[in-house]
Simulated scan of single mutants.
Amino acid sequence: MNIKLVLLSTLLSLNLFSSSSFTGSSMSEYASNLNTKEYDWYYESRNNGEPPLSPKETRDIISKYPVYYLGNTDKKVIYLTFDEGYENGYTERILDILKKHKVPAAFFVVEPYIKSNPEIVKRMEAEGHLVCNHSAHHPSMASVLDLEKFKIELQEVEKVYKEVTGKDIAKFFRPPMGKYSELSLKYTTDLGYKTIFWSFAYRDWIPEEQPSHDFAMNKIVNKTHNGAIILLHAVSKTNAEILDQLITKWKADGYEIKSLEEL
Rank of each mutant, 00 (worst) to 15 (best):
H137D: 05
V110A: 08
M177I: 12
N117F: 02
K167W: 04
I62E: 13
K171C: 02
F108W: 03
L5R: 08
K37M: 10
I206S: 07
Q245A: 04
F82T: 13
I94V: 13
C132H: 04
D146F: 06
D83A: 04
D204K: 01
T10R: 11
S184K: 05
V121A: 04
S45C: 03
I229V: 01
E148G: 14
L14N: 09
D244V: 00
K251M: 01
P55F: 06
I97F: 01
L185S: 09
D168S: 11
S63W: 08
K186F: 14
Y86E: 09
F22N: 11
Y39G: 12
V164L: 02
N133R: 07
K99R: 14
P52F: 04
G24C: 14
E156Y: 09
N35L: 10
L145R: 11
H101G: 07
T36M: 07
L243Q: 00
L7D: 05
V77G: 14
L95E: 04
A142M: 07
K56M: 13
F197A: 06
A201G: 11
N72D: 15
S116T: 12
Q245W: 01
S116Y: 14
S9R: 14
F215V: 06
A31H: 09
H134P: 04
K64H: 10
V77A: 15
L14I: 13
P112E: 03
I169P: 08
V164Q: 03
E148Q: 15
L16F: 08
Q210L: 04
K56N: 13
F172N: 03
D96C: 02
S140Q: 11
G166F: 02
K37W: 10
Y180L: 10
L5D: 05
H138W: 02
L5T: 07
I61D: 11
S26G: 12
T36P: 06
V221T: 11
L80Y: 15
Y65H: 09
F172R: 04
V103W: 03
E208R: 11
I206W: 05
H134A: 05
G166A: 01
A31G: 06
E261D: 15
K115M: 13
K151Y: 11
S63I: 08
F215S: 06
Y65G: 10
L243H: 01
K75V: 11
L231R: 00
D83S: 07
T81E: 12
I196H: 06
E87A: 13
K249Y: 00
V221L: 12
P139L: 06
A240H: 00
L154D: 03
Y180A: 05
V110K: 10
S140K: 14
F17V: 15
S13A: 12
H129C: 03
F215E: 07
L34E: 14
T10K: 11
I257M: 01
D146N: 15
E182G: 09
F107I: 03
F197L: 08
K219W: 00
R46H: 08
Q245D: 08
D96P: 02
N2A: 05
H101R: 12
L183F: 15
G89A: 01
N35H: 09
H213C: 06
L231A: 01
V144P: 08
V144N: 07
K159Q: 05
A105M: 04
K159T: 07
G71W: 06
L145Y: 12
I206E: 09
N218W: 04
K115A: 14
V144K: 11
K194E: 13
Y187P: 05
